[in-house]
């Protein structure tokens, strides 16, 4: 049974990593949001499995919180946002995707090496996945750097939050509930502010291209 559970958690972790790569190479905004929703579901799945095995009840609550926030509310808000901004079918031109993938692989190797000594010290049954969680954080970081449009950058930001949440589950069975609620509140407020912000940007520049936002530089 334990072996099976262990494999199940590893499976979820693998799905997280694949989704992170998929998002890195995805050019359609609407597909990005779908991928983000799947990623949220994966985190929920992993959390429920860990909660079931360890009998940590607070993990069920945090899984429910993730489900409500990252699978339902935030994707819903993002869909509304891209409808109202009329960017649903936008396709982004990006730099060379194969190169991005290669850099991504290097990042994964780096993250595994960094997490190796740490994950040995963890008591969690999901400790093997800490490396993957860190890799997902770095990949979403790279996604934010390489995107030129506002909405994908925000999705990269949220993906990073998902990966951190996954890291907390795999390293320590999740953060205490109060802290998790606080983080959820911050994320939610952040989404609203970003939404307001995107309308302001578009009103000002007639586009959501972040490349307009490169005037402030040191001469």
């Amino acid at each position: 049974m334990d072996a099976l559970i262990g494999q199940l958690i590893n499976l979820f972790a693998a799905v997280m990593l694949i989704l992170a790569f998929a998002m890195l190479s995805q050019r359609r905004i609407v597909t990005l949001i779908h991928l983000f929703t799947f990623q949220g579901l994966t985190v929920v799945g992993a959390t429920v499995v860990v909660a079931y095995v360890t009998q940590q009840h607070h993990l069920y609550y945090s899984a429910a919180l993730t489900l409500a926030l990252k699978v339902a509310l935030i994707p819903f808000l993002l869909h509304r946002l891209i409808d109202r901004l009329n960017v649903r079918w936008d396709i982004e031109t990006m730099l060379n995707i194969p190169t991005l993938m290669l850099i991504g692989i290097v990042l994964v190797v780096f993250a595994f090496n960094l997490a190796l000594p740490i994950s040995k010290l963890s008591a969690s049954i999901a400790r093997g996945t800490l490396g993957i969680a860190l890799a997902c954080v770095l990949l979403s970081f790279m996604m934010m750097i390489t995107r030129a449009k506002a909405v994908p950058q925000v999705i990269g930001f949220l993906t990073m939050e998902n990966a951190l949440f996954f890291a907390a589950t795999s390293a320590t069975y999740g953060m205490p509930m109060v802290v998790e609620l606080g983080i959820a509140l911050d994320v939610l407020v952040g989404i609203f502010i970003l939404g307001v912000f995107m309308f302001q940007i578009r009103e000002q520049f007639d586009s959501l291209d972040i490349r307009h936002l490169e005037k402030l530089k040191e001469e």
Partner: peptide, 19 residues
């Protein structure tokens, strides 16, 4: 335009940092 750019940078950079 400059203040929007500054705020966007502030949000994204501090958000990533604080993550």
């Amino acid at each position: 335009p400059a203040s929007l750019e500054a705020a966007w940078k502030y949000f994204i950079l501090c958000g990533v940092g604080i993550a």
